[in-house]
Simulated assay, not measured.
Amino acid sequence: MNIDRRLLLAGLGSVAVSGLPRRSFAATSVTIGDYEILSVSDGNLVLPGAFYFDGLPEQELNSILTPLGVPKDQVEPPCNVTLLRHEDRVVLFDAGSGDGFMPSAGALLDSLDAVGVAPEDVTHLVLTHGHPDHLWGVLDDFDDPVFTEAEHMIGQTEWDYWTDTDTVNTIGEDRASFAVGAARRLEAIEDRISFFGDADEILPGIMAHASFGHTPGHMSFEIRSGSDALLVGGDAIGNHHIAFARPDWASGSDQNPEMAAEVRTRLLDKLSNENIALLGFHLPDGGVGRVERKDSAYRFVSEDI
């Protein structure tokens, strides 16, 4: 596997109409056989630290966060969207958040433009799960599909959960808007959707892995060519700090914390034992790296050139 972390310039040094400098975009390129994989940015989230850290033992938490320079009051995880090119296919894993979730996110279309991909070039849009930062970018400001030529794909279990009219009543008050937003967007793309299940080869060389817990039907995806492989992890391994150091700890970011912890531990064990690369949606440095294990703990090692 070859990894190339590079800066892609999009009008760097020029001035936009608003008088603000235009953004520049960095992308990480990974080659596995004849698969080209790019990590492209949708910006970042801004979340209170309590979202991750409430109820955790303070002394051990500090010992994990301090060496990594992670503050406890506020975290700003990146949003890394996976783009894959293979033969005549242009595959996007997740759609980003669009303009309707957070001002700090929603940069995906600009990032795609920076690597020469227009929305209509995407042939397949594969959704890991239905949370806003992964799904809401399927529609534009006029509620029309953004990726007009793409087959949209989602796990059957995840679809069933978000399209169930009772979900908004059972998901909890803090996430009720997630349920409303997901149902509206999935209804809008219903005629474009196809479904898959655990262990299905959804496209040549790409296998779905059930990684339920973060959401009831969350899916990850293994891209493999011979002995070389990379896991598109979505939010199954949701950060580079406590998720690795203490994967058994429950996280407030997960809808089923106990199930998510079991899945997280299983995936980390698989990735470290089999030396499979990981591309995580909220991991640093483009999200691409390896998992190293020491005793019962793990660490994320970003791959740099």
Rank of each mutant, 00 (worst) to 15 (best):
D143V: 02
A182H: 07
G130T: 07
G137M: 14
T148D: 07
V126W: 10
H209W: 15
D140I: 09
H131V: 13
L135K: 03
D198I: 15
G172S: 05
N169A: 12
S97F: 07
A107R: 15
A114H: 03
G130M: 10
T128S: 08
D164K: 14
H131M: 13
T165Y: 13
D174G: 01
G96N: 03
Y161H: 10
H214E: 14
T165L: 10
H124N: 04
G116T: 05
M219D: 10
F196I: 03
E173Y: 11
F212V: 07
A208I: 13
D133M: 14
P132V: 11
A182N: 05
H218C: 09
S194C: 01
W136I: 12
R184A: 06
F212Y: 08
I206Y: 09
Q156M: 13
A118M: 11
L139N: 01
G217Y: 11
G116F: 01
V168N: 01
A118V: 08
R89T: 01
V91T: 13
A107I: 14
W136Q: 06
D113K: 11
D198C: 07
Q156H: 04
E158T: 07
E149H: 15
P103D: 15
S111G: 01
V168E: 09
M207I: 05
F195W: 06
E201A: 06
L109P: 00
D141R: 15
T157I: 15
L92M: 07
D133Y: 13
A208H: 04
E149G: 06
A179P: 00
I202A: 01
L92T: 03
I193R: 03
A105T: 08
T165I: 12
H218T: 12
H209M: 15
L112R: 02
P216L: 14
I206V: 06
E151Q: 09
A199T: 04
V122N: 05
L92V: 02
L186K: 00
H124V: 04
R192L: 09
M207P: 00
D191F: 13
A118Y: 04
G155L: 02
